[in-house]
């Protein structure tokens, strides 16, 4: 009874705050994924990686967390964990405080503590198919598809890149400087378009050949190789 009363009062307060929010600045992100310079389409379209291996992508999901905006004298931090899905191109919206920002940092992956603190919900709900059941921990980056180069059954590609335990932790911090200073003023709205270049996933700091590693399902050396290519995949395409 007291609890529900408290809840109601809280929601009233939240409502009032929310009304105020509309006068706040808003920054949203859009993540665009490309392969061979074209927007990635799931299922039907075929692409070629740097080793001349053709492939199709049926599923691409990854976690982004601890988003940080750095400015001259301001920092804006959001520790939320977001599950991104190439099949779903909605943008992420954050209320932002005023200031001049020059770069964006975020983690591909999930903080190690959240990998071993029991059952989680929302983006981290095991229902999202991003939690390993036999070797606890989240899959940080999941790419599935087919390739004639794959030696796995049915020509499958299954890359489940994850691992939170030392020395196999593959959470990677990505730093992206803005092409120009981002000035956030009261009431202003900005959209940052981040490009993810899948070509660089196969060929970056490490070489990931489908013929050699169509299946990547456990934390360890191969997962580290794949994760080392993350930084190179991301760039800021534009700020609107």
């Amino acid at each position: 009874m007291i609890r529900s009363l408290f809840k109601k009062i809280c929601s009233c307060i939240a409502f009032v705050l929310l009304c105020n929010l509309f006068s706040y600045a808003q920054v949203s992100f859009k993540f665009n994924i490309t392969a061979n310079g074209k927007p990635l389409l799931l299922n039907d379209s075929s692409y070629t990686n740097g080793f001349n291996e053709a492939y199709q992508v049926t599923r691409l999901k990854y976690y982004i967390s601890n988003i940080l905006f750095k400015g001259d004298d301001v920092m804006l931090f959001n520790e939320r964990v977001l599950l991104m899905d190439a099949g779903n191109t909605d943008s992420i919206v954050f209320p932002s405080s005023n200031g001049n920002y020059h770069s964006l940092d975020f983690t591909i992956g999930v903080d190690s503590a959240l990998n071993c603190s029991g059952a989680q919900d929302e983006a981290l709900d095991p229902l999202n198919g991003m939690f390993w059941t036999w070797n606890s921990g989240y899959i940080f980056f999941k790419l599935e598809g087919y390739s004639p180069a794959s030696k796995a059954d049915l020509g499958r590609i299954e890359h489940h890149v994850g691992g939170y335990r030392f020395p196999n932790n593959v959470a990677r911090r990505i730093t992206l400087p803005f092409p120009r200073k981002l000035e956030v003023k009261a009431g202003s709205k900005h959209t940052i378009i981040v490009n993810i270049d899948l070509d660089k996933y196969w060929k970056g700091i490490s070489d990931i050949k489908i013929a050699d590693q169509a299946l990547l399902m456990t934390p360890g050396r191969l997962a580290i190789k794949a994760a080392d290519n993350f930084q190179g995949m991301f760039s800021i395409k534009s700020i609107e």
């Binding site: 071993c116 029991g118 095991p126 939690f131 036999w134 921990g137």
Partner: peptide
């Protein structure tokens, strides 16, 4: 938990038997 210690928390342990094809063979959803 488990013979190899692969499970790191008691709360996530049931995900393994619930979904293993040679145990309860179901899916979480």
């Amino acid at each position: 938990y488990h013979w190899d210690g692969g499970i790191n928390h008691i709360e996530v342990q049931p995900l393994s038997p619930l979904t293993a094809p040679n145990e309860m063979g179901s899916a979480l959803d």
